[in-house]
Design a binder for these strands. Structure first.
Lengths: 271, 271
DNA sequence: CGTCATGTTGAACCAGGTCAAAGAAAGTGG
DNA sequence: CCACTTTCTTTGACCTGGTTCAACATGACG
């Protein structure tokens, strides 16, 4: 069967880190080293995956993190009854596999949605360079923290948002990624199917399709199969209802007004 | 107002790490040191929070992780329109605050649901001891990875599960925690309100209440306000539908049979 | 023991799921 | 390059789990 798919020959294609688009964002990046990468001389450089191939599967032993150089990877869980929950679509610059550290095995699956070039960051090599490189340490911690933050935002989305808000958030996310990587914030291609979008956002295909149609009718976006054009970014932002950008300065202040039940007791304690 | 609540005097109450129930599970634990804790001589030891008091709030600068010694803390996001999504209920032994590392500020709020003793793990001290202690490094990485894993399970729960499955998972979780900490796996107290359970599980209070009643009628649990007794653990497990325990050995194998659409291509590539 | 928060239960409603069917793309093989 | 097959997408009609609204019960606490 498809079991073979997970056997990837990492030796077959070595590429220089110097040419890597990811550059200094990479965990392995170190300008002091020849080749600018701590993995330069290891025998585990880059590898190409084709659509539908697995990078790893649930249950496999964890040995490495993976950095995406180009392409797109989806990571997902499968429940007892075969239901697939997509955990993320991962784009160039992102590192995946953090969830394997805890138990020494991957709990999730990672599959390429398109031709994808990835870089294997052997955990042993990583630990080897760990003591010597404080910036490697903090890059790793920040990378994991960012992953946690991303998950927390997804919990908010799945726990509280309505279908259109979910789609709006999703599109906005892509848009933000696009802009921050020098591409158009308003015109882009979705590499994944509607089904997969649904499995990511906790919705059915039909709902995804309907909401996209609805947004199009409302003049907020324009859709041609995989091509998305955002016509009204502000409307999309309104819909998404994320607090504008990140842990702003004054959230605490804003929220003081809210009638937290539990808070009463605090007040009492201070009066 | 309640703003005062977040000003916590960490100097006021120093306690020995040697007496700490958390012991070697703690990030700071090091048997070679006097006091067995890398934080022993720092001026940031333990502190007591009362019900409704904040440990930190969204927007505050991140300086430390916090380990819970006793009690219970809820962490949560608040959306633009004041909606609260609870990210977790954190019990003794757990470390919270990882989500603040990425941006240098907390994106979430942390409030005590009951009298709670916490230990402040200053991030500076942590980094100071980092190079010297490989086990501190790996404990930190594994702690964060476990948090990621926990979130991924919650994504599954919120994305795929029905109300009763969510409650079943929730109760099962508590049960597992209880057992692994030497308490009864079948009889315990819920420290949080139904409203909070709802905000955690993406449901309304009414639904939580109804489902609990239903489970009681079905003879699976018995509820007296906050007292829960699990009568049929297996039924609960069936309901929850988590794959029994963690990234088992053979998930990959099991799943090979599933008709993944994308997989077709892989097979071809290998034939 | 009265008050206020929290919990329960009922009834009506609706967002999104389910089922079904048809159209549009994209891969496949001649 | 074209015909064929399969997957993906869209849309409609219906159904239902969970929300909403409302009323009442319980229980903690000063």
């Amino acid at each position: 069967m498809s079991g073979k798919a997970q056997i990837i020959d990492f030796q077959s294609k070595k590429m220089s880190c110097e040419a890597c688009i990811v550059g200094h964002q990479c965990l392995g990046y170190d300008p002091r080293l020849p080749g600018a990468c701590i993995f330069k001389n290891s025998n585990m450089p880059h590898q190409l995956l084709h659509r539908g191939e697995y990078l790893y599967r649930a249950g496999e032993p964890f040995q490495a993190l993976y950095m995406i150089r180009s392409g797109i990877i989806k990571t997902y869980f499968i429940s007892e009854d075969g239901e697939e929950q997509i955990l993320g679509f991962h784009l160039p610059g992102e590192i995946i596999g953090f969830d394997g550290i805890a138990e020494g095995a991957f709990p999730s699956n990672a599959m390429a949605l398109d031709t994808t070039s990835i870089c294997k960051l052997s955990f042993d090599s990583l630990e080897e360079h760990y003591g010597a490189s404080p910036q490697l340490q903090s890059a790793l911690l920040r990378g994991m923290s960012r992953e946690i933050l991303r998950h927390e935002n997804m919990l908010m989305l799945l726990g509280k948002k309505k279908a259109d808000q979910r789609l709006a958030s999703f599109l906005l996310n892509r848009s933000t990624y696009q802009r921050s990587h020098g591409y158009s914030a308003t015109v882009f291609t979705l590499a994944m199917t509607r089904t997969d979008i649904g499995k990511y956002l906790g919705l059915t295909v039909e709902t995804v399709s309907r909401v996209l149609s609805r947004l199009q009718v409302q003049g907020i976006i324009e859709v041609h199969t995989n091509q998305i054009q955002i016509l009204d970014l502000d409307a999309l932002r309104d819909l998404a209802g994320d607090y504008a950008g990140r842990p702003g300065i004054e959230h605490g202040a804003i929220r003081v007004n809210r009638p937290f039940t539990g808070e009463r007791q605090v007040n009492k304690a201070f009066h």
